[in-house]
Nucleic acid binder design. Structure first.
Lengths: 213, 213
DNA sequence: CGGATACGGAAGCTCCGTATCCGCTTGTGC
DNA sequence: GCACAAGCGGATACGGAGCTTCCGTATCCG
């Protein structure tokens, strides 16, 4: 008989159910409003009280930590799928668009996958082996401009993410236009097509400026 | 003798001096830290007390308002100078780079030139007559992709601005790389050169993700 | 059915930025 | 020079927001 026996009974069924609901709610609230959203928001979205959230997780950081793995796995899956595309250029651009889209649809993505000191290392360890070949292959095929790196993928998703965050209420598809422009900019020599969707109306584009960061 | 005579004496010399110092300080503090910076920060940078700031300006909005004109004039000057460039493509790209640079060096630019309901209209009224011809001319010369608009200039500066804001401490010139990529993306068919400066190291690029917005 | 487990959400705490107030200093006109 | 209006400084009041705790109540499960 260990006096420290950590758990005698299995957790109650409703408790486990709530844990899942909270995590689901956290993912969708942080995706929509960014990690600046409060745990009260998460609790409301989950249909539970705040007290319940704090029973499951010591604090907000713990909630964010719990989301790390699934987000990284999503990105890894994108890279793995792209690897199956035979055309090197299409494979790379498909992956890049996928990352951009993931970020555009998830305002908190950046903050969730980058927490604390070691997440950069962990991110590299888990993604680089699959992503680097995509880049090398596209480069060798003359489909990617010289000096383009995996880091650039991060930054490009940041850029389009900024657009998506600030245009979502005005036109949720507006970011596609800039994703396209940016992806064209990765080609060694672009055969650029017409940008789409159409440009935002001026007043919307201008309004966007007023709340960046 | 008007009983309401609003001002008997000219303002004291030191008072006027302080007004200028506050406005200068405000411009540089908001440029560096964004409009989220406090008036206390501005007062400290100006070397005056907070009380003095509130004596000159009823509130923070008034300070921001006072910066509007000079910022817009800067942008107008960029456009006017670009108009003198004979090569249509170079004129447009020079202007675009200028706007991007202005924003990259001034974190508060967007918020300062876009305040309240009418600033979008005012902005259009003051800039469009000079900017639109730059675009039309570049388009006619086959130097700009179809459907590119003045609004796109706003959004592209927003995108690169997001990069600049988040990389400033790590490498203040990093944004140039993405400005180049984005500007290449505006061409109907790009003859892209090597991107410069070099890519950020991975850990820096990853860290940047953690604090976007 | 009864005790253990979990829930809900009001209330307290802390932090932060805005704005005020008033005793002290400085410039200016006589 | 002197007197007083004009201007200054900065401690502090104020308000709001988010995080977290606490405990009376509800729910589950043996």
């Amino acid at each position: 008989m260990n006096i420290d026996a950590p758990r005698v009974h299995a957790p109650r069924a409703d408790a486990e159910r709530n844990r899942v609901r909270i995590l689901d709610a956290a993912a969708s609230v942080f995706a929509e409003h960014g990690v600046g959203a409060t745990l009260n928001d998460v609790a409301r979205a989950a249909g539970v009280g705040i007290g319940t959230v704090y029973r499951k997780f010591p604090d907000k950081d713990a909630v964010l930590d719990a989301l790390f793995d699934v987000k990284v796995d999503n990105l890894l899956r994108l890279a793995t799928e792209a690897t199956r595309e035979p055309d090197a250029g299409a494979a790379f651009r498909g992956f890049l668009l996928g990352v951009i889209e993931a970020r555009a649809n998830d305002r908190g993505l950046g903050a969730v996958i980058m927490r604390g000191e070691n997440s950069a290392a962990e991110l590299g360890r888990r993604l680089a082996p699959t992503v680097e070949p995509l880049i090398t292959r596209a480069r060798a095929a003359g489909e990617l401009r010289e000096g383009f790196t995996g880091q650039d993928v991060c930054i490009l998703s940041l850029m389009v993410g900024a657009v998506a965050d600030n245009t979502r209420d005005v036109d949720p598809r507006a970011w596609h236009r800039y994703a396209q422009l940016v992806i064209d900019g990765t080609r060694p020599s672009a055969a650029a097509e017409r940008l789409s969707p159409d440009s935002l109306p001026f007043r919307d584009a201008a309004a966007v400026l007023g709340r960046a960061r």
